[in-house]
Amino acid sequence: MSADEDGKKPGLRERKREQLRATVERAALDLMLEQGYDAVTVEMICEAAVVSRRTFFNYFGSKETVVLGRAPEGPSPEDQQAFVHGTHGTILADLARMLLKTLQERPHDVDPARWRDRLALIRATPELAMTLADTIAAKDADLLHLVGRRIRARYAAEGVAEAPGRATDLQITRQAEVIVALWWGMARYTMQTIVQHPETDTEELIESLLDTLTLIQEAEL
Rank of each mutant, 00 (worst) to 15 (best):
E43A: 14
A124T: 01
L68F: 02
K16T: 11
L12V: 12
E47N: 12
V110Y: 07
R53P: 14
Y155K: 06
R26Q: 14
A187R: 15
Q80G: 05
K9T: 07
A156I: 04
S62R: 06
R13S: 11
K8C: 10
I91E: 02
A219D: 14
T90G: 15
L182H: 06
P198W: 01
G86A: 15
G148K: 02
R106Y: 07
E127S: 13
T23L: 10
R149F: 01
T173M: 00
L144K: 08
M1Q: 11
E220F: 08
F56E: 01
Y37P: 05
R54Q: 14
G36E: 05
R21T: 11
D94G: 04
R114S: 15
F57C: 06
F57H: 12
L205W: 07
D6V: 00
D6I: 03
L12S: 13
R166G: 06
T200K: 07
A167K: 01
L128H: 06
H85V: 07
S76R: 11
M44C: 04
H145C: 01
A133N: 10
K8V: 04
L92W: 01
D109R: 09
S208N: 11
I136M: 09
M98H: 07
E34V: 05
E158K: 07
D109W: 14
I91G: 03
L132V: 06
M98W: 06
R53D: 11
L209P: 08
H197D: 13
L20M: 14
L31E: 08
A167L: 04
A181W: 02
I216V: 14
P198E: 05
T125G: 02
D109P: 00
P126T: 10
Q19K: 13
A141I: 14
A138K: 03
K16E: 15
L68H: 05
G7N: 13
I194G: 03
R17V: 09
V195W: 02
T90R: 05
K9R: 13
W184A: 00
E177L: 05
D211K: 11
H145Q: 09
Q19D: 12
N58R: 15
L92V: 12
L103S: 11
A157Q: 12
Q81P: 01
D211T: 10
L33N: 11
P112D: 02
V180T: 12
A156M: 09
E199R: 08
M1I: 13
V147C: 03
A120M: 03
W115P: 08
Y155M: 08
C46I: 04
T90Q: 09
V42Q: 08
A120V: 02
A71P: 08
D201Q: 11
W184F: 15
A39G: 03
P107S: 07
P75C: 03
L92N: 08
P72K: 05
L68K: 02
A71W: 04
D38A: 15
L99I: 12
W115E: 05
I136K: 04
L210M: 09
E203H: 10
V42E: 06
M98A: 04
K101N: 06
K8R: 12
S76N: 09
A113R: 10
V66E: 03
Q35V: 00
R123M: 05
